[in-house]
Structures are given as C-alpha cells and as structure tokens.
Design a protein around this nucleic acid. Structure first.
Length: 806
RNA sequence: GCCGGCGUGGUGAAAUUGGCAGACACGCUAGGUUUAGGACCUAGUGCCGCAAGGCAUAGAGGUUCGAGUCCUCUCGCCGGCACCA
C-alpha cells in the first residue's frame, strides 16, 4: 500500500470538487432546508493569509459540510473586504496603485484559502472594491440619504499640519503623527454621518438605539458580545430639568439620572462648546478668561482631553447665577471640559455630594458639598459637606423620589444614549465615492440612481497634499449638476469601509445582479444568516453597523427581516509559540503555506480545531501539530486492516460500540461547536482499531463519512480506495446505532463520606438496594464503614452511591 | 476607574453543567525495533510516600452527603469602554 502523501492527494480532490461543482449553492433552496453559514470576509492584506484565518474558516467548513450531509442546502460563500487604508499607504510608499496591489493580494489569498479545501461556493465571490459591488454601496447611501438617515455636519478630524493630511485614530501615536512625528491637531470639516441615533423614517418601528438594544435578546450571540453592544449603545434613564438664569430669559437644560439629588446641586457646569456661553457674553464679567479656556479646550485633541483628565480644570462664569428649581437657591455656573458637549444636553447640575467627578471638581475649586439623605445609597464620605433632606420627598425611596421631584419642578422623563451618529466620510482615495454633487445654484444634489456607479478614477496621485486625493482628479471632480446642468463639483470624500462590509452578506445571495443590490426572492430564500463566525474584535463596530443597515433597509421596505445574523460565534486569537500576539517584529509568525507544505491541509485544519475551544486565545505549538499528523498517518494505515469480516463477535462489538460513540460525539460536538473534543473522539476510535487490528468495510466507511467534514481530502482518497467512484461528499451523515450505545452494565462510584473508596460493576437495571449490597461487599468500603453507623446513603442512578457514616 | 471574561499537571487542554479531576494530545522516562531523514511499537507519567494512605483545580472562607463547577472576599492575567452626568 502506498504511503500517505498529502501533496499528491489534496490538489486532486480540490480539482474534483471544482470540476463537479460540488459546493455550488442553488438560487432556490428547498423550503425549510436552507442554511446560510458565513465567515467574516477578510481584508486581503499584503502579508497574506494568517494562521488565524483558517481557524474560523475550518469551523464553518466543518459545520457546512455536516449540514449538507444532513440534507440541508448550504450557502457558504467567501469574498474580499478590499477597500481600506493599508493599500493606500502602500501606494504612497511604493507607488504601486491600490487596485494593483489589492488584485495581487486577492490572488494570494484565493490560492491559500483554496489550498485548505474549504467548501466555498466560489461562483458567489464578492469584492467590495469592484464597481459592480460599490455601485450598490452608493445606492445604499442614497436610500439612507433620501430617508433622512444620511446628513452632513461639521466634525473634527485628526489633522497633521506637516503631512497636510487627515489621520485615522490608529495613525495617531501619543498625539503625534505616526509618519512624521509632528503634533496632531483637531480640525473641523464638513462630513457625512449616518443617523444611527435616529428613528425609523416611516415612523412605524421607533428609534434605532432602542431597537438595537432590545433586539439583542432575540439573538443567539455570545453574552460578552451582547454586553459590549449594550454598553456601546449606553442607554440611561433620567430626567431633563431646567434651571433659570438670573437676569436672562435663557435657561440651562440639564440631563440627570438622579433628579432625586436635585437638592444637593450646588453649582452648574457647561461644556466649553455650549452655545449659551456666547449668548451670555454681556453678563459674563470675566469674558477674556472664559474665552481663553474655551479656545484652549477646542485645540486639544479628544485624546488629550481624556488623557489629561487626571486633574479637573474649569472657569467660573462670573456674574452668571442659576436658580435651583427645587429650592430656588442661587448657584454659580462654571464651564469645564469634563462635561461633554456630545452627551445629554452638554450641561450638568453638579451634585458633589453624590458624584465623584463633581466632588473632585468641588474640592479643587472649594465649592460647597451637600448630600441628600435617604437616597438609599452608600454615600461617598466627605468631611466638610452639609447634609440636606429632600424636602417634602424625604423618606421615600430614591426611585420613587426621582420621578416625584421631576414632576414637581416640571421636568421631563427622558432617555439618553451614549451611541453617536456614525461618521462615514473618509478623506481618502481607496474607498467607495460618496454619490453627491455640489451645484452652485441647486446646492447639494444626490447622484441619480441610474448614473451609478460613481467610478473611482485611476489617474490619481495619493501623496498627501492637504485635501482628499479625489478632489485633485479634474475628470472626477468637475461635473455637471444633475438638476440644472450648470458646472458643479463632486463630493471628494469616500465612505468608511465599514459601510462596504455592512451589507455584503446580502450581496452573496445574488452577487452578479446588475438591476438591484440583490433579487428580493433570492434574499428571501437565503437570509438571514443562520450562523456567522468571526473574531471578537468586531464585537461592536462591524456587527452594530450591519445590524443598523439591515434594520434601515427593512424599514424602507427592502428586506423582510430586521436582524442579519441569527447565531454568532467567535473564534479566539491564535498566538505565536511564545504565547504573544503574532507579529513580524516579534518574529513569531507562523506561515500557513509552510504548515500546509509540511503537514498538509487536513492536518492544518484538524490541528487548529484540536488546539482548544474555538473562542479561546491559544498559542501555536510547533510540536503539538505532530500529534494530529500521527493521527492522520495512523488513520491512513487502517486501510490495511479493512476486511469484510471480523475474526470474532467480541471484536465486532468493540469496534462497533466505539464507532457508535465516536459518531454520536462528533455529531454533538459539531452542533455545539466543540470541535476540539470531536477530534479527540476520532483519535480514540483509531486507537481502538489499532488494538484489534481489524475493521469491517462497513464500519470503516461509516468512520470516513464522520471524519470527512474535518479532513475532506484524506477521507475522499480512502473512500476511493474502497472502490467508490463518487466523491464522499455525496454521502449522508451516518446514523448512529443506538442499540450499540446502550450498556447492560454500569460502573458505580462508591464513596464513604464523599471520598471514593471503590467501584461497583452492576447491571444497568439494578435498584438502589442491589447497588448498596454490592457496594458494601467491597473490602475497601467495608473497611471504612465498619463499626460506624450509616446515617444515610445518597444514591445517584447510574453514577454513584455515597454512604454517610458517623 | 467602570463593565465583562478567565485562572486545572512540565505544556495545549478534558470533565455529560453539582457526582470517580486530568480524557485526547505534546513532552518526558524505560524497553523493543529501525538505526539517515521533525520515525515506529509497547508500557509508564499530577504531587508526597517503600506502602497503606494522604494532598491536589490561583489563595482564604462558606453552602452541600458531595464543589474545578454555586456564594463571599483577596490576588493575578486577558478583553471592552473610558470624565456618559
């Protein structure tokens, strides 16, 4: 018999699957039999495939193959999240056009992914940087635009004055430009946003934050991910209260989650950006000082403002006094950058007796501190503070007092979210152009749908020169107004790549459609995604944005479901052999090509599954993979033991039983995504076969079918060696012989006072009395029970008996 | 700081969810076999002890007939958020 040679076997079967279109998904799956199993599509980076990628891909591949063997029709596609900053940076450095480098990278990724034998339907491949795809990303923008869910406003960007360019947050290191080291400043630009904090434009379904939060309950997602999304949305209930300003008609509106502490409010704080400051100019006695503070705060980057947060700063608005609506007391008004303009109303009532930050501020500026009694909380211990009661609301619990006080001062119950609108403008070249035209006479005009796509021009230089690269392409930039035909200019910003990836799962259902983003019937046939697998690093952004886009398309009548991903599972990081994150600079990167070259795709797949639980971070062990390699070698050599008959019945029973257990375990583990223990079950089976050195053809076939989703190449080859002409993928998942799983005898653990003293083998149907008798007959048990009184016995059927003695 | 998660042999990890801790692998030890190639086979391998036995799931308490699993506190590591009123 030939030796196991993965290099000869693997390409052979990969070619066969492709030629016979074994994994092509139909457009019309049988009713109730569809499964959409999706991987997070990769960014095709220049570094090539990382060993981390195949981990999730193998998991979904095993699952997809298992589902197909159980009569499901499976949509299992792959594609490329191909726009993005690295390709553009590479172009700046090397002069290679992003289109070229991206194409090259996709080629490499395709080769590497195909070499692992995954059962993707390659006929549905998508690429977000192709005009055929981003045309529909632009279409999506227009839908949101027309529905009022896309709008423009001024927002700060990180700006490097030296490079004359906008920087992404990850390009800012310690407040400095990663390229030139120059200090990064904040600069305001007009930018596009998606209104994720808004509501269904048709008014039927309510607010997005609310739904994004409450729908989480309906999803089969890991709890930590749901938690992170909930925190990100950051819902809090509270009240909006108004404070009058002495000598002015203006009022200060504040949001508070603790209206019950109103009587403890001893001063107010406005964010430095608050509009009231300008309004009250005439009243403010120290205007110069105030102006200076406002200016200083605005030039600080967000990073600085939070970094330098250790010491609180602020300035009092001298001459401005607010009136506490609870007790009509006059209190001072301050400005300070620890109050954010982006949250709540941009102003707070400060209650230093109940809030640590306010307390810190009050301490520094020697402001009075008061606590409200009966607030039902552990109060921070303060030395100089006074205690005040909450007037007529004294004695009520704080939840009740909250709303009574709110009503008494004519406040309004309200809900605030931390979630902010999604900034989608990027001052970059390598992304989908935003389909908007600015006309001098008609103003802002959306590109007409029939004029899409707005194609990315090729003749652009990427060197940073102070404006978006696209604005320097005259052919792109100068256009006619779609409305009045007079000279106009195109929007030169491109979209955040998260927009590209927030709808790609829809495109897979109909990737070549030129009339629509996807055919309604095809979407209905396949969506929503049944199982989605990817890294936990996308816990918030990608998953939240995809949910929002799906929800918005649903509200606008394009989709029949509000949630895109029913079940989500995360894969953990694969670390270097040193237990550190893999990186070039550490020199601990494992190259998948080399692993496949040395051990083969089947071995790589199985080892990645065997390493440990899918969601855990696990170090790559260069020696550990040898165990799986040996297993495959041994499985290969079992072929020599195959015979139609066993030598005796005992042999047949041993192998049959072990096989039934293995298939059952593999099935359970695939369904629950515990792939590591499924691999060990296969190993146990092969070890058992080596003990008897014989297996029937039928049993061997059953085993090969169960192993196929994990190691598709070797199982096909061994299957063919048994004389089969068709690929093994055409087979059904083997049924487990339940009778073989049934045992006629069980082993009971016998404990005395909770300590194991022996084991008793009894028949499965034995009663408690039978077990007791047999257990007490054990010498070691008798020894520990002798001369003492058995107070009671705890009997767990089929497991154990525990004698409690005095 | 806040919110989550995790902590089991020399190593990666199992443990039917409160019921015999350490399955399956790596490594190591011994023997066999082959000796050219990350080789193969058999046996052993948590710690202490000659043994009987005792001790062991980060540490300390608790609940329970029984705890890796539940509760409380402490320590350590990882992830997310970061002045969110």
């Amino acid at each position: 018999m030939a030796e196991y040679n993965h290099k000869a076997i693997e390409p052979k079967w990969q070619k066969r699957w492709e030629e016979e279109s074994v994994f092509v998904a139909p457009d019309k799956p049988k009713a109730g039999k569809k499964k959409y199993v999706l991987d997070m599509f990769p960014y095709p980076s220049g570094a090539g495939l990382h060993v981390g990628h195949p981990e999730g891909y193998t998991a979904t591949d095993i699952y997809s193959r298992y589902l197909r063997m159980n009569g499901h029709e499976v949509l299992h596609p792959m594609g490329w999240d191909a726009f993005g900053l690295p390709a553009e940076n590479y172009a700046i450095k090397s002069g290679v056009h992003p289109k070229e480098s991206t194409e090259q990278n996709i080629k490499t990724f395709t080769r590497q992914i195909k070499s692992l034998g995954f059962s993707y339907d390659w006929s549905r491949e998508v690429n977000t940087s192709s005009p055929g795809y981003y045309r529909w990303t632009q279409w999506l923008f227009l839908q949101l635009y027309h529905a009022g869910l896309a709008y423009k406003k001024e927002a700060p960007v990180n700006w490097c004055p030296d490079c004359q360019t906008v920087l992404a947050n990850e390009q800012v290191i310690d407040g400095k430009c990663e390229r030139c080291g120059h200090k990064v400043i904040q600069k305001n630009l007009e930018q596009w946003f998606f209104r994720i904090t808004g509501s269904d434009p048709k008014g039927k379904h309510g607010s997005y934050p609310e739904r994004l939060l409450s729908n989480l309950e309906t999803l089969d997602w890991p709890d930590p991910i749901k938690h992170m999304q909930a925190n990100w949305i950051g819902r809090s209930e509270g009240a909006e209260l108004e404070f009058e300003i002495k000598g002015s008609s203006s009022k200060i509106k504040v949001f508070t989650t603790r209206p019950d502490t109103l009587f403890g409010a001893t001063y107010m704080v406005l964010a430095p950006e608050h509009a009231l400051i300008r309004e009250l100019k005439g009243q403010i006695e120290n205007w110069d000082e105030v102006q200076q503070y406002v200016k200083a705060a605005s030039s600080k980057s967000q990073l600085e403002r939070t970094d330098l947060a250790k010491e609180k700063t602020g300035v009092e608005l001298k001459g401005v006094r607010a009136v506490n609506p609870g007790n009509n007391e006059e209190i001072p008004v301050w400005i300070a950058d620890y109050v954010l303009s982006s949250y709540g109303t941009g102003a707070i009532m400060a209650v230093p007796g109940h809030d640590e930050r306010d307390f810190e501020f009050a301490k520094k500026f020697k402001l009075p501190v008061m606590q409200v009694v009966d607030s039902g909380e552990d109060l921070p211990s303060i030395s100089s503070g006074k205690v005040v009661n909450s007037g007529k609301f004294d004695g009520q619990d704080s939840e009740e007092a909250k709303w009574k006080i709110t009503d008494a001062v004519k406040g309004r119950r309200t809900i605030q979210y931390k979630l902010r609108d999604w900034l989608i403008s990027r001052q970059r070249y390598w992304g989908a152009p935003i389909p908007i035209i600015y006309c001098e006479t008609c103003g802002e005009q959306p590109v007409k749908e029939e004029d899409l796509p707005v194609t990315l021009p090729d003749d652009v230089d990427f060197l940073p020169k102070g404006e978006s690269p696209l604005s320097r392409s005259k052919s792109f930039h100068n256009v006619k107004c779609p409305n009045c035909e007079s000279p106009a200019r195109r929007e030169s910003d491109t979209m955040d790549t998260f927009v590209d990836s927030s709808w790609y799962f829809l495109r897979y259902t109909d990737p070549k459609n030129q009339e629509e983003f996807a055919d309604k019937k095809k979407i209905k046939a396949w969506m929503p995604v049944d199982t989605y697998v990817g890294g936990a690093e996308h816990a918030v952004m990608h998953l939240l944005y995809s949910r929002f886009i799906t929800m918005a398309l649903h509200d606008l009548g394009h989709l029949g479901f509000p949630e895109p991903f029913l079940k989500l599972r995360n894969q953990g990081l694969i670390l270097g052999p040193d237990g550190q994150k893999m990186s070039k600079s550490r020199g601990n990167v494992i190259n998948p090509d080399e692993v496949i070259e040395n051990f083969g795709a089947d071995c790589m797949r199985m080892y990645e599954m065997f390493m440990g639980p899918l969601e855990d971070a696990k170090p790559w062990d260069t020696n550990g993979i040898v165990g799986v390699a040996r297993f495959l070698e041994r499985a290969w050599n079992v072929h020599a033991f195959v015979d139609t008959e066993y030598l005796n019945q005992e042999q047949e029973l041993i192998v049959g039983r072990e096989l039934a257990r293995t298939v059952k375990k593999a099935e359970d583990d695939i369904q629950s995504f515990n792939f590591n223990t499924a691999v060990s079950a296969f190993m146990i089976f092969i070890n058992a076969v080596y003990k008897v050195e014989r297996i029937s053809t039928h049993h061997w076939e059953t085993f090969l079918k169960a192993l196929n989703p994990f190691a598709p190449h070797i199982t096909n080859e061994l299957w063919e060696m048994l004389g089969h002409k068709e690929v093994i993928e055409k087979e059904k998942w083997p049924e487990v012989d339940v009778l073989l799983l049934a045992q006629d005898e069980v082993m009971y653990a016998v404990q005395v006072n909770g300590k194991l003293r022996g084991n008793a083998m009894v028949s499965t149907s034995a009663s408690e009395g039978d077990v007791t008798k047999k257990a007490l007959a054990l010498a070691n048990v008798a020894k520990h029970v002798e001369g003492r009184e058995i107070a009671k016995a705890v009997f767990v059927k089929g497991k154990l008996i525990n004698f409690v003695v005095k």
